[in-house]
């Protein structure tokens, strides 16, 4: 963000006094303005959370309630039977698939991205800018230009129908974003620490592992969460490279909605709530860190 130089003339005492009575645009009493502000906040919260609230309410309704016309707006007899039914069905397996695929991919991505990010952020080498541009530009290509040939490769390796068919592409396609975010965190570590480590006889690699890495643990964690959310939410590759045994949650929920939509709103809602709530909890907890991480990576998703 290039900031224009502030060329405003220095304020004299008289102009400062002249400016003061102007005040806010809307000439409202402070109390009304305050009320208005919180009214806007309330509207924003309702609009943003409405889908989740509705899924939550529906998941607590009885099957009779979810298919009544008109549907009640509130569960009269809250029950968690939808949740146990969802977990006993295929949803439990989709859940496990999602967890394994996302977790393993995130670990691989983080390992490779940390090494690369350090090289980009700290080491001098030829064609650095060019290679960085290559990495960034690849993340912007439509996944549709990759989905077909990768399918053929994975099929020839007999991986379609195993979770590796997801782990391999996820691990790689999460790299550009992770590298960009990690670079931003690495650039905040002062060079002096590595210089001191070099004086103490540590190699570059040694300084990286023993000095720099421990300093960016919060950054590593933030990046991992962002990468994990991306993998957890991925749909296109999961849709193409999975079979019923390896469906992930998003794919499983969409397929459930297309086959059992008219009969099982409660179970479907319970599945959706369960797939969303762990992430939401994580995000509300780490809100500030994730925002800074996301903006550092230039935002994709």
């Amino acid at each position: 963000m290039a900031l224009a130089p502030t060329t405003t003339a220095p304020a004299t005492e008289s102009s400062r006094q002249a400016a003061r009575p102007r005040g806010p645009l809307l000439k409202l009493k402070p109390l009304t303005r305050q009320t208005l502000l919180y009214l806007v906040l309330a509207v924003i919260i309702v609009v943003q959370f409405l889908p989740l609230i509705w899924a939550l309410l529906t998941s607590l309704m009885t099957p009779q309630e979810t298919t009544a016309v008109p549907v009640p707006l509130w569960p009269a007899h809250p029950t968690v039977s939808s949740y146990s039914e969802a977990l006993q069905g295929d949803i439990g397996r989709y859940y496990l698939n999602s967890i394994i695929a996302s977790l393993v991919s995130t670990l691989v991505t983080m390992f490779l991205a940390t090494l690369a990010a350090y090289a980009f952020a700290r080491l001098r080498f030829r064609w650095k800018r060019l290679i960085l541009l290559f990495v960034v530009s690849l993340s912007l290509f439509p996944p549709f230009s990759q989905v077909i040939p990768l399918y053929m490769v994975l099929q020839s390796l007999h991986l379609i129908g195993s979770l590796l068919a997801l782990i391999i592409p996820y691990s790689v396609f999460g790299l550009p974003m992770a590298i960009l975010i990690l670079m931003a965190f690495l650039q905040e570590v002062p060079f002096e620490y590595e210089e001191a480590a070099a004086l103490d006889g540590l190699s570059r690699l040694g300084a990286f592992v023993r000095i720099v890495l421990p300093m960016i643990i919060p950054g590593l964690f933030t990046t991992a969460v962002i990468v994990f959310v991306g993998d957890w939410n991925e749909y296109l590759f999961a849709l193409n490279y999975t079979t019923t045994a390896t469906y992930t949650l998003p794919v499983g929920i969409v397929i459930l909605s297309q086959t059992e939509f008219t009969t099982n709103f409660g179970v479907l809602s319970a599945a959706m709530v369960m797939s969303v709530v762990p992430l939401v909890a994580l995000i509300l907890l780490l809100e500030r860190r994730i925002v800074s991480g996301l903006t550092a990576g230039g935002l994709k998703g």
Binding site: I44, Q48, P51, S257, S269, V276, L284, V291
Partner: peptide
């Protein structure tokens, strides 16, 4: 306000579409 802003990013696009369709 910030949490509310962040929230839609966190739900899977596909799952979110199913909720909306519902």
């Amino acid at each position: 306000a910030r949490a509310a802003i962040l929230f839609p990013w966190a739900i899977p696009t596909a799952t979110n579409s199913v909720i909306w369709a519902y």
